[in-house]
């Protein structure tokens, strides 16, 4: 299976302070890869580095070509889209406007219309609230909106930052259900940053464990789930 995203020796810094010290990772075409680690391990920074949101060095290839020097909005146009931690909802805008913003890099009006209806199919609750102010929705609904908004740009690779953060277990289950459906039906690859390692390792095929800006451990989801270190440190059993 070929990789949609491949990073070699990825490094990143906030200002003068290095945070990531050379990470190698790959996301296979149509695959789901999990990025695990404690607070401050550099998971979010890795995502932000891939999207050129922080100062970044290293060789990153997306669909086989180098993306060095590309800006965030170039990368979004190329189909690499992030669902940010905290959901990044446009709070003062309606649900529908949020979805239209998600499709900002597209120009096909009819396709956008169809995709909005398709999102209401995946997430019926959004369809009921299309004219509602997005900021007034619950956390779970906003997370669904964030995913739907990202999908509106017809992404090939979704970077998901802690989609389960602060949500009730039932909602988390629903969201992960939809994510696997989307992965299966639309062939969207996913790089998933998660605190909830159990859940992440269930949906992912491959996983990386970050520790202070380096890959401490990697392997298939089964291997990591079986590893004593991971179990003790992150899985809690």
């Amino acid at each position: 299976m070929s990789a949609i995203l491949e990073a070699r020796n990825l490094r990143a810094a906030y200002g003068d302070r290095p945070v990531i010290f050379g990470i190698d990772l790959a996301v296979p075409e149509r695959g789901i890869v999990a990025l695990l680690g404690a607070n401050g391990a550099g998971k979010t920074t890795t995502l932000r580095a891939l999207l050129a949101e922080v100062r970044t060095w290293g060789d990153v290839r997306y669909q086989g070509q180098s993306i060095a020097g590309k800006s965030t909005q170039d990368l979004v146009r190329m189909g690499m889209v992030m669902v940010p931690e905290g959901r990044g909802t446009f709070t003062d805008f309606t649900v529908e406007e949020n979805l239209l913003l998600g499709a900002y890099s597209r120009r096909d009006k009819d396709g956008i219309r169809r995709d909005i209806e398709r999102m209401y199919g995946y997430f019926p609750v959004l369809g009921q609230r299309r004219k509602q102010r997005a900021g007034s929705m619950s956390g779970g609904e906003q997370q669904m909106l964030a995913i739907a908004r990202a999908l509106m740009s017809r992404p090939k690779l979704l970077l998901l930052d802690e989609p389960s953060l602060g949500l009730a277990p039932l909602i988390v289950q629903e969201i992960f259900g939809i994510l696997t459906t989307i992965n299966r039906e639309e062939g969207v690859s996913m790089l998933l940053v998660e605190q909830d390692a159990v859940r992440a390792l269930k949906v992912a095929t491959y996983a990386y464990l970050l520790e202070t800006g380096r890959v401490a451990l990697e392997g298939t989801a089964e291997q990591l789930a079986a590893s004593d270190d991971v179990r003790r440190a992150y899985l809690g059993y």
Binding site: R17, A38, N39, G40, E211, T212, D228, D229, R232, A233
Partner: peptide, 23 residues
């Protein structure tokens, strides 16, 4: 400020290693 942050990170590392070491 930078130093404090670094120290905090080191503490975390230490905790992780201690757990791992215990195993």
């Amino acid at each position: 400020v930078v130093e404090t942050v670094v120290v905090v990170e080191r503490e975390e590392v230490v905790i992780v290693r201690q757990d791992g070491g215990g195993a």
